[in-house]
């Protein structure tokens, strides 16, 4: 007879791992958290196997006979980065390990963490997308007009991406849209600015404003996972990064080609 407590511990630990993985924690951190949570309740045999698309965990009391082993598999479908939730689950796991919290209380705490609100979309767009894009345009050697252009376009792209994500568009499509809008708006603005005697560096504006979509962190995390020995997780993240980069390139490339063919423009 398998005790219900063991199942509940497993479900709770896996839920904690799921929140972390869905919100951008590294593979090793998720595995580490699951092991800590289970071991703190005296389940000495814990084997988590975490990939970006699913979590598998087996738990037993001792490694001897293993005839009462419990296994739970969870499929992970969408991932984004929300570091606040990662930090909160980390705090929770520290408290859980150090105290005698019962499982029911732990589950309600985890559910509260899962429901934590992110910043409103306006803050996200202006302070997040706009500021990041604008200052990146400056970092890449742009001037003041490029900063303003990237700030405006970066904010608009943030709005579009939040909307498309909330409508559950696949990331591939929403990134094509983002790239196309970035290139299209940058070109459009570059035709307006000469009227007020300002020349706009289209290349810098596009570079700055697609910064919010570009998968730099994803490719670095992929290599990090591979170095740590989580080869499957590393490959999965690398493929994700390549798909995102391709979709942005398709979006931007399409508009740039159209511009060259129809209006004869080019990036100097």
């Amino acid at each position: 007879m398998i005790s219900t407590n063991r199942k509940k511990t497993l479900i709770m630990a896996l839920y904690a791992g799921e929140i972390m993985l869905k919100n951008g924690a590294e593979t090793y951190r998720v595995e580490d958290t699951i092991i800590r949570l289970c071991k703190s309740r005296n389940y000495q045999y814990v084997e988590p196997y975490v990939t970006p698309t699913g979590i598998f965990v087996s738990v037993d009391t001792k490694g001897e006979s293993q005839d009462e082993i419990v296994t739970y598999i969870k499929r992970i479908k969408s991932r984004r980065i929300n570091l606040n939730k990662v930090a909160e689950v980390n705090n929770f796991s520290r408290n859980f390990v150090e105290s005698n919290m019962d499982l029911k209380e732990a589950m309600t705490m985890l559910k509260d963490i899962d429901k934590l609100k992110s910043f409103s979309k306006h803050i996200d767009a202006f302070l997040g997308g706009g500021v990041a894009s604008g200052f990146f345009a400056l970092l890449f050697g742009g001037d003041m007009p490029a900063f303003l252009g990237a700030f405006i376009i970066g904010s608009i792209i943030s709005y579009i991406l939040t909307y498309l994500n909330s409508m559950e568009f696949p990331p591939f499509l929403s990134n094509i849209c983002g790239g196309a809008v970035a290139a299209g708006l940058a070109i459009l603005i570059s035709y307006v600015t000469p009227l007020i005697n300002i020349t706009l560096d289209v290349d810098k504006v596009i570079t700055g404003s697609i910064m919010v979509m570009v998968p730099g962190v994803a490719i670095t995390n992929a290599v990090r996972d591979s170095i740590a020995g989580d080869l499957v997780a590393g490959l999965a993240r690398a493929v994700e990064a390549i798909i995102i980069a391709t979709s942005i390139a398709v979006g931007v490339g399409f508009i740039l080609t159209l511009w060259q063919i129809m209006l004869g423009g080019s990036l100097s």
Binding site: L83, S118, L127, G129, G130, S133, F135
Partner: peptide, 15 residues
């Protein structure tokens, strides 16, 4: 510039 763009990303990543 790098300071502010990092903070922009911290907002996007909900830190």
């Amino acid at each position: 510039y790098a300071y502010l763009s990092t903070i922009g990303f911290a907002v996007l990543f909900n830190a």
